[in-house]
C-alpha cells in the first residue's frame, strides 16, 4: 500500500512552470534622434457643453468625448430651439470635465438659430433623423403652435417628423 501511495503521489506531483515578460524602461539607442513639431488633436478628452438655465428649468447639458483627431460634434438644433423659444442669445460654454476649466464659448443668436433650422431642413429633406429630449420636443411643439415668424414655423414643421424622443441614458 505504501508503494502504491508513493507511485500515485509521484505521478500526481510535478513541476509548474510559469513565464512572463517584463517591460523595462531601458533603451539601447541605434541611431541619432530626430525631432519634429506637431499640432495634434487631443484624443480621449471629455468636455461638458452647457447652456444658460431658464426660469422654467430648461437647460442644455451635453457630455462630449473627443475622437482620435481631437474632434467632437453636437447638434445645434436644441440650442436654436432655446434661442427662439426664450427670445435671447444662448452662449454655449464648453468646459473640460477633468478640471472644469472653461475652454470655449459659442454664441448662438436668433439669426444663427434660423440658419441652423434651414440647415436641419436640408438634412431632413436628405433623410436625416435626429433625437431630442422630451423637454426639447415640447419646446419644438410649442414653437410650431405659437411662434410668430412664419418662416421659422415652416422650417420647424418640416423638421418635426424627423425627430424622435431621446432616452435619459442616451
Amino acid at each position: 500500500m505504501a508503494v502504491l501511495l508513493c507511485v500515485a503521489a509521484l505521478l500526481a506531483a510535478g513541476c509548474t512552470t510559469r513565464s512572463w515578460t517584463e517591460e523595462t524602461d531601458t533603451y539601447r539607442p541605434l541611431g541619432p534622434t530626430e525631432q519634429r513639431l506637431e499640432n495634434r488633436g487631443i484624443a480621449d478628452l471629455w468636455l461638458k457643453a452647457t447652456g444658460p438655465q431658464e426660469e422654467d428649468g430648461f437647460h442644455i447639458i451635453e457630455r462630449l468625448h473627443t475622437n482620435q483627431d481631437g474632434q467632437v460634434s453636437m447638434s445645434l438644433l436644441p440650442v436654436a430651439l432655446q434661442v427662439l423659444a426664450y427670445g435671447h442669445d444662448v452662449a454655449l460654454e464648453f468646459r473640460r470635465l477633468e478640471d472644469d476649466v472653461l475652454v470655449l464659448t459659442s454664441l448662438i443668436t436668433p439669426e444663427n438659430a434660423v440658419t441652423i433650422l434651414r440647415e436641419w431642413q436640408v438634412q431632413v429633406r436628405l433623410g436625416a433623423k435626429t433625437k431630442l429630449r422630451p423637454a426639447e420636443i415640447k419646446l419644438l411643439d410649442q414653437l410650431i403652435e405659437d411662434y410668430g415668424d412664419e418662416t421659422a414655423v415652416e422650417l420647424l414643421t418640416e423638421i418635426r417628423p424627423a425627430i424622435s424622443p431621446r432616452m435619459e441614458w442616451e
Binding site: 541611431g31 534622434t33 525631432q35 488633436g41 481631437g70 453636437m74
Partner: peptide, 19 residues
C-alpha cells in the same frame, strides 16, 4: 450642417530615437 464641431489641438515636440 446644423452641428457645432469643436476641435482640441496642442502643439507638441516629438523626439524619435531608433532604439
Amino acid at each position: 450642417l446644423g452641428h457645432l464641431q469643436v476641435t482640441a489641438r496642442e502643439q507638441v515636440q516629438v523626439a524619435v530615437t531608433p532604439s
